[in-house]
Simulated assay, not measured.
Amino acid sequence: MTDPVDYQRFKTSAVAEAEDVLFELKGKYGDFWQPPILPELPRPMNPKAVRDFYFKAMIYFAEGWEPRLAYFDASAVRGGNPRRANKYFAECLRPVMTHISEGAQSRVQPS
Rank of each mutant, 00 (worst) to 15 (best):
W33R: 02
Q34R: 14
Y60L: 10
P67D: 07
K26S: 00
P42M: 03
R107P: 00
F23D: 14
M58L: 15
A90W: 04
L22Y: 08
V108W: 09
A70R: 03
T98C: 08
G64L: 05
Y60Q: 08
Y7E: 00
A16D: 12
F72K: 04
G30M: 11
Q8D: 12
K87A: 14
P39S: 12
K56R: 15
W65A: 15
R43A: 14
F61G: 00
L38F: 06
P67V: 02
D52C: 08
L22D: 07
F61D: 03
P82S: 07
G79T: 03
M1V: 12
Y71T: 05
R84Y: 05
K48D: 13
F10D: 00
F72C: 00
G64N: 15
S75L: 04
T12P: 01
K11E: 02
W33M: 01
K87S: 10
D31V: 04
S13N: 11
K48G: 08
G79L: 02
E63H: 10
Y7T: 00
G64H: 10
I100Q: 03
K11A: 02
H99R: 00
V96W: 06
Y7L: 02
V77E: 06
L93G: 03
E40P: 04
E91M: 09
E66W: 08
L38P: 04
T98M: 08
L38A: 04
F89N: 05
A57G: 10
A90S: 15
G103E: 09
I37M: 09
N46C: 05
I100M: 10
C92W: 00
R94V: 02
R68V: 01
S111D: 10
Y71S: 08
F55R: 11
P39I: 07
V108Y: 04
V21C: 10
M45S: 13
A14F: 14
E102A: 14
S106L: 07
I37Q: 14
S111F: 09
K28V: 11
S111K: 10
Y29K: 13
V108A: 12
P110Q: 07
A76G: 08
N86T: 11
A104V: 12
F53T: 07
E24I: 10
P39H: 12
Y7I: 00
K26V: 00
L38D: 00
L22I: 15
A14T: 11
E102H: 10
K56S: 08
R84S: 13
V5I: 13
F55G: 05
D73P: 03
K56G: 07
E102P: 06
L69N: 03
G30W: 09
P67W: 07
V15N: 04
M58G: 11
K26N: 02
V50K: 15
A16P: 04
A74V: 06
Y71V: 02
F10Y: 14
L41I: 07
M45P: 00
Y88N: 01
E17N: 13
D3R: 00
W33Y: 12
S13T: 14
A62I: 05
A90P: 01
M58I: 15
S75T: 04
A18S: 14
P47N: 06
T12L: 05
R51M: 01
D73N: 06
G30S: 09
N86A: 15
M58P: 00
A104Q: 12
D31S: 13
P67Q: 07
A76E: 15
